[in-house]
Design a protein around this nucleic acid. Structure first.
Lengths: 350, 350
DNA sequence: CTGAAAGCGCTTACAG
DNA sequence: CTGAAAGCGCTTACAG
């Protein structure tokens, strides 16, 4: 684990199909046929088959994927395009850490079908479409796009790559899209708060650069509030700091609920509690329309929330991409639902 | 944004260098020379140069990267290998969400140099080395490996791909590795706690599947404790739940500090506070040897901690890979240091 | 059942 | 300053 590095690398040449063919005493195409699982009409006697497999093993033959792509016109590589903040803003180089669950789901789903996922983080998608890169270079059989994108980008992408799947963003067609049912999540959350007997709801939402889901969640909350006669107080957050929470915390009464529309706003509120003596569920209720890293043991299990499996969303998107590539038909869009986790930050009044 | 999908895709053929050459009335190699930035000895008259550029523009010519790889033997693709839990454990499909910052750093660093990052999440690295995949297929010019790996895997990788960089894991050679200075982080954290006047330190650490950093952090804490005569009480965590925290919380006194060696253990403790009336810094100090999403606005700013920029670590690794590929020499290993953030969960005693 | 040929799209020498 | 040729490693028809 600690020996010196840098063994001089010999200009060693990897074995090719030609080498295998020569060693086995057959022609090159026969090698292809055997190694790629013999097609009908190209059956090979089991004797030569064995010879070829043995020669390949002895030479450590590994087919060159780039050459295969060149010939077949298919790379079995899928680009994952994920929106990112501009690189010029050094404090926000992460686009939504929770996206990592989507990334992982997409990666695993593609891997299961023998595809490789290439991550492209795009601060400026428009610019990425124009500059020379993998997208331009016919490298991807398809592209999975995560998060909101502008119309120009959508059109540009459709020219650059034949197959697309849209995940968790503003694109919503009858086919080829995956989304979470945002309004359902908000309604579910609001119903639980209503059932527990809270009358006044402070709804935390992000006022800057809102995701498409933000208005949908607010709409869900408002619909339920109308139905059950609760009062909604919108609380617009502009910065991510806990300082913004101080006035809210001062105002909260035991009959009040804070409904965080995003996981981050719930976390920010919790962090702000260091400076206050109030805490849920004793002094107010805290519920959230979302949870954090759903699949991870370190999730915030105590939070009363609607949980949602982003990994599954990514996995579903990958499966849709594979179906599209292999059947040639774009599968119907899917709207995924979360479920309520009662947690411990809210409790029944009375 | 809502029009129907599935315009029938014509069997449309992308323009090739040959098409461009014909349209411009030159030979194919001249096209290559112009489009790849003319090499010395292959200068082209500015008239034909213009003709070629115009023809390429008109035809929407985009060079085929797979073909280029085949010919040149270089793909400009780098594999990012990241350890993951086994897929059979559905509750832990995320390997350490904080790794996402490393992933993003690597991606950005490679992109800056014109390389593409392909993510491979490996539940069973050993198996991945043996199965047919991108690693086998000569697809990567190099590989960046994140987290701990077994010796067999190291040797296997060295046969499969010529260039490696090791990040945040057990591999530590004089060259080609990037790590955080774990012992320094722990010492820094312990010194701050000592300065603030805390006498008894409860050190939270994960007893199951520890990262290489865990013993180093504990060693750093113990060294400082010896120097300043503090008492260390190790608290081994087995599950990620907050239930484990209950006995600890009962025992804590205002002169006590909890030193979380990992960010997750700090979070778990904070989540457990829902069930208790104690909170830092009033009733005890909470400090951490690590922070969470360092670059993200949603970071836990209030936590008194040693902060560390994983994005920078990934970016550094990417730069080292590029240097290695382009200069042919493996750059020296780098040990990166975090810095103290005083936060609000610990305060001076007295 | 097997092999010789042509071709994917590109680039790297090398000759004019 | 420009072009005809050879080749990267693979696969897909097609002929024996």
């Amino acid at each position: 684990m600690t020996e010196p590095i840098s063994v001089p690398v010999l200009p060693w040449r990897a074995a090719t199909a030609k080498d295998v063919a020569e060693r086995a005493g057959v022609a090159r195409p026969t090698v292809s046929a055997v190694l790629n699982g013999a097609k009908s009409g190209t059956s090979v006697s089991s004797a030569t088959r064995e010879r070829i497999l043995e020669a390949a093993r002895e030479l450590g033959y590994r087919p060159n994927l780039a050459a295969r792509s060149t010939r077949s016109g298919k790379s079995r590589q899928i680009g994952l395009l994920i929106r990112n903040f501009s690189r010029s803003d050094a404090t926000r180089l992460m686009a939504h850490p929770l996206s990592y669950e989507i990334v992982c789901g997409v990666s695993d789903g593609l891997e299961d079908a023998g595809y490789l996922m290439c991550l492209m983080r795009l601060g400026d998608l428009q610019q990425a479409l124009e500059s020379q890169n993998a997208l331009q270079g016919h490298l991807f059989d398809g592209v999975v796009v995560v998060s909101d994108v502008h119309r120009g980008v959508i059109e540009g992408l459709e020219k650059l790559v034949r197959h697309q799947i849209w995940v968790d963003g503003n694109v919503w067609n009858a086919h080829g899209c995956v989304r979470r049912d945002e309004e359902f999540a908000a309604r579910l959350c609001a119903q639980k708060v209503a059932e527990m007997g809270y009358k006044r709801w402070f709804a935390l939402f992000h006022a800057t650069s809102p995701h498409y889901s933000s208005p949908q969640r607010m709409a869900g909350l408002e619909a339920v509030a109308r139905e059950c006669g609760a009062q909604i107080v919108p609380v617009a957050l502009r910065h991510a700091g806990s300082a913004e929470m101080a006035p809210l915390l001062d105002e909260l009464q035991p009959d009040d609920a804070v409904i965080a529309t995003t996981f981050y706003s719930a976390q920010t509120l919790q962090n702000a509690l260091v400076l206050h003596d109030k805490r849920p569920p004793r002094d107010f209720a805290l519920v959230c329309c979302d949870d954090g890293f759903h699949r991870e043991g370190s999730a915030w299990q105590e939070l009363s929330r609607v949980s949602f499996d982003r990994y599954q969303m990514g996995f579903t998107a990958a499966q849709m991409m594979v179906e599209q590539l292999e059947n040639g038909t774009t599968p119907p869009s899917q709207l995924l639902r979360g479920e309520w986790q009662s947690g411990r930050t809210a409790k029944h009044r009375i």
